[in-house]
């Protein structure tokens, strides 16, 4: 149990750190982008909302830093992330709430698919080392080195612009009304296929290479030799003994590299104008909508933390050594 408790403590600490970083960034950086905007909004913004923005961006010169920090937490705990400048006067939290499910759906599903498929391919490559399978390694290396968004551009150019098989942007047919109907869900899957494919293509290589190297390492472990000595079927040795153990570090590195992978896949939303949180962040950046940027960062970070906890939980389920402390 203590493994999970330690992890939870770590995530609480990390969440606190992320929130605090979010508090300090606008205060520490030179320049003061918000004041000018507030000046332009003079009169159109109600005093409550203006106060929130002042707290969020450290314009409350009268209060002490500590008081500002407390106020900031107060706002967050009430779910108040300020007002968006570009979608004035929509609260940031509302915009974020609308876009988050799309990201969880797209990036989440695609990342899990990439992990599973990549680990399976890596298992095979590692097991069959020194055969033709090694020839797939340079291909994987290439895909690992390609920037995510560029791969997105290429798939759009080929599958959407040239062949016209898939739409190049959007997340569902705008002619449809969002509802739980077969037609709407079909449209979501159709529109999501290309971005998902790109996410899978660009992140699968990392899992392939990681799993392959772990398989090579694990294959020379004694318990794998024992499994062979026992005369188990090859499939059972490969999947049940070698891959079963090789996947452990793979899962923990899944947790650790989630932040990196999610960062990269969010860019994909920008390329495909997919209405998730990455696209919202992109729009916020290009329109200098600072409250929205801050809100997006917080939500992205907290979501990644939750995903991390799920991965840790999976690890605890897979490795009995984390569960039992007694001998």
């Amino acid at each position: 149990m203590s493994f999970l408790l330690r992890r939870i403590a770590f995530y609480v600490l990390t969440a606190w750190a992320a929130i605090t970083i979010n508090f300090f960034i606008p205060r520490l950086l030179p320049g003061d982008p918000v004041t000018a905007l507030l000046g332009r909004m003079q009169g159109r913004i109600d005093s409550n909302a203006e106060h929130a923005l002042r707290v969020l961006f450290g314009l409350d010169q009268d209060a002490t830093l500590w008081q500002q920090y407390l106020d900031y937490w107060g706002l967050l705990l009430r779910g108040d992330l300020g007002l968006s400048f570009t979608h004035f006067p929509t609260p940031v939290s509302e915009i974020v709430n609308q876009s988050l499910p799309w990201t969880v759906g797209l990036v989440g599903v695609a990342t899990v698919i990439a992990f599973v498929v990549g680990s399976l391919i890596g298992t095979f490559l590692g097991w069959r080392r020194g055969t033709w399978a090694d020839g797939l390694l340079p291909v994987a290396t290439f895909f690992q080195a390609v920037p995510y968004f560029w791969l997105g551009l290429i798939t759009i150019a080929v599958l959407s612009v040239n062949l016209g098989w898939f739409p190049s942007s959007g997340s569902y047919d705008r002619g449809l009304v969002p509802a739980f109907t077969g037609e709407f869900i079909g449209s979501v899957v159709y529109y999501g296929f290309l971005p998902a494919l790109t996410v899978v293509l660009s992140s699968v290589a990392g899992w392939v290479l990681g799993m392959r190297n772990m398989m090579v390492t694990v294959s020379s472990e004694d318990y794998v030799t024992v499994a062979h000595a026992k005369g188990l079927a090859e499939r059972q040795v490969m999947l049940g003994y070698a891959a079963r153990n090789a996947v452990l570090p793979q899962v923990s590195s899944f947790a650790l590299s989630l932040g990196f992978v999610v960062g990269g896949t969010l860019i994909m939303e920008m390329v495909f104008s997919y209405q998730g949180i990455g696209y919202t962040l992109y729009q916020a950046v290009s329109t200098h909508d600072y409250p929205l940027m801050q809100g997006c960062f917080l939500v992205i970070t907290l979501s990644v933390l939750v995903a991390n906890m799920v991965a840790d939980l999976a690890y605890a389920l897979l490795d009995p050594r984390t569960r039992t402390e007694d001998r």
Binding site: F10, I21, I25, L29, G259, L266, Y290, F297, V304
Partner: peptide, 24 residues
């Protein structure tokens, strides 16, 4: 170690975007 794990877990690209976008 906790500090470096934190920096690993927090998505870097959004953080870099956030910082870079607020720099003059």
């Amino acid at each position: 170690s906790a500090l470096s794990n934190m920096f690993l877990v927090i998505p870097q690209l959004p953080l870099i975007i956030l910082i870079a976008a607020q720099l003059p």
